[in-house]
Design a protein around this nucleic acid. Structure first.
Length: 493
RNA sequence: GCCCCCAUCGUCUAGUGGCCCAGGACGGGGCCCUCUCAAGGCCCAAACAGCGGUUCGAGUCCGCUUGGGGGCACCA
């Protein structure tokens, strides 16, 4: 039970599109913060200028907003620990890097990338583990300073102890020991003056008073380094939670670019903004990603509030999870069914408008209850209900003749149906259904045959919402008109 | 190559030594309902990776093997 208010963060780098992994990496720390009455922060880790993608930050912010994962502090809204964009904090990192030098835990290194590369290649050739060879590690402090002051290019590296070991702790996996000899003198400050992740994240997490670091498991191997850095500063480390990765649907390996585009062809995607465009609703997407890697003891249809109420770090699972799009469809359909009529009407309306249809809101409110339980994604509203908003429809002649019936049978059915409908005060199901069923009975055909061709005549398609409910919405006049139109089509044949 | 992590039905998972001849959900199959498509109801098939320990007793603890994943950058 986590009862103390925590401070958590989502710290993405703006180097690409927001995908499921990002979304979940934001969701869990958000849930933990809300659960404990704590604070959730968005921090942009944009220290790699080469990989920076314009617009990526905005996509991240839009994605979080769409999902309802709201942060309390962030680059666009500020907060007491700002700025929240790392490129705006470069002076801070510079200061802390040199502080580590002063403490004897780091050193300036003047080796050129070319030299480093050749050393590495040699090591690989002689089957050694590639690592920094220590050239600048023992330069006198004054000499290091002098060369830096003279304008020589440099980086600052962590001075990893040669001996001993370090014990680290992951909330989901327990503790683990690593020999320091297996660790490298990693770069903390790059020659462009910007920090690497190792320095920046540790400094920021400390300065922003992050109590729980929830991040991807790709960071697990560098956890010992991170703990070394934190302790070198004399700080205490936060709780570390490493989330497992998402695997592709087959469970073999993680999603590649190719699989990602295959998924899109399939009407699915691993990108948040795509999902939105494909007609998925945030409730469904959230529920789906939440349960990949989180074992909820009972009941798995959850709203964001439900998740907040039930979230426990201890219920997170350390093993990798394969993406399962069928389950996304299930959650999406389930959450659509739970929406209030007015709400769903509003969400579905843009799809009709996008088709150039004129939407009558009153009519839409009547249609929604008819299609709600038939939608997997919002755009499914089109095949089921677009015809409601069309002036005329073109039924296919073949659909106007039921299986085992002749055109004459169909014409007879239509004629008698007209008879019935014309005498009805209103075409409510209560009015229209009993006499129509009586007609079916009297003609000796099956309901399927009779109602099937009526559906084709009135809706222009073979699949639609229930016939009698549809007739009510369409209205008596238009129903008559369409049945007559169907008769014309049959007669012309 | 070296280091780290993971391992229950096809998939997501429950399970923290006896309550498990392993429970739920998705997906699959069948039946019912039924004007189409859905939704809903009922039922079925489906798993503790293997091998050694520890223990009166192991899915649950330990080791090895195997399989999978991740990491070894002046990327995050």
């Amino acid at each position: 039970m986590n009862s103390k208010p925590v401070r958590t963060r989502f710290a993405p780098s703006p180097t690409g599109r927001m995908h499921l992994g990002s979304a979940r990496s934001a969701l869990y720390p958000f849930l933990l913060a809300r659960r404990t009455g704590g604070t959730f922060i968005l921090r942009i880790e944009d220290t790699d200028q080469k990989r920076f993608v314009p617009g990526a930050e905005q996509e991240l912010i839009d994605g979080l907003h769409w999902l309802g994962i709201n942060y309390d502090e962030g680059p666009d809204i500020g907060g007491p620990c700002g700025p929240y964009r790392q490129t705006e904090r470069r002076d801070i990192y510079n200061e802390y890097a040199w502080r580590l030098v002063g403490l004897g835990h780091a050193f300036p290194c003047f080796c050129t990338p070319e030299k480093l590369a050749s050393v590495r290649q040699e090591q690989i050739n002689s089957k050694q583990n590639p690592r920094y060879d220590g050239t600048c590690r023992n330069l006198a402090v004054e000499e290091g300073r002098r060369r830096v002051d003279s304008g020589e290019k440099y980086v600052i590296r962590f001075k990893m102890p040669k001996e001993g070991s370090i014990t680290t702790e992951d909330v989901l996996r327990g503790s683990s020991s690593t020999e320091n000899s297996a660790l490298d003198d990693s770069v903390l400050l790059k020659s462009d003056g910007l920090p690497t992740y190792h320095l920046a994240a540790m400094v920021d997490d400390h300065l922003m008073e992050i109590s729980h670091v929830i991040r991807g498991s790709e960071w697990l191997p560098s956890l010992p380094l991170h703990v070394h850095i934190i302790r070198a500063f004399g700080w205490v480390e936060p709780q570390f939670v490493h989330l497992s990765v998402f695997l592709k649907p087959s469970g073999k390996g993680k999603m590649s670019k190719r699989e990602a585009s295959d998924a899109i062809k399939d009407g699915h995607s691993i990108f948040v903004s795509d999902l939105q465009g494909l007609g998925y609703i945030p409730e469904g997407v959230l529920n789906w990603i939440a349960l990949m890697g989180w074992g909820v003891p009972e009941g798995d249809v959850l709203s964001l509030d439900d998740m907040i109420a039930r979230f426990e770090i201890q219920n997170l699972t350390p093993s990798p999870a394969a993406i399962n799009f069928a389950k996304l469809d299930h959650f999406n359909a389930t959450h659509i069914r739970m929406l209030q009529t007015e709400d769903l009407a509003e969400r579905v309306k843009p799809y009709f408008l996008h088709e150039g249809l004129v939407v009558d809101d009153i009519k839409l409110l009547k249609i929604v209850p008819l299609i709600r339980e038939r939608l997997v994604t919002l755009d499914d509203c089109l095949p089921f209900a677009a015809w409601f908003f069309k002036e005329s429809i073109q039924p296919k002649p073949i659909d106007l003749i039921a299986k085992d019936l002749t055109a004459a049978d169909s014409l007879n059915i239509f004629r008698q149906a007209c008879e019935i409908i014309i005498n009805l005060p209103f075409t409510t199901p209560a009015n229209s259904e009993p006499p129509m069923r009586a007609l079916v009975e009297q003609l000796g055909f099956s309901p399927n045959q009779v109602f099937g061709i009526l559906r084709a005549a009135i809706t222009g398609q073979t699949v639609s919402p229930p016939l009698f409910d549809s007739m009510e919405i369409v209205g008596k006049e238009k129903v008559m008109e369409r049945i007559k139109n169907a008769m014309d089509i049959l007669e012309k044949k």
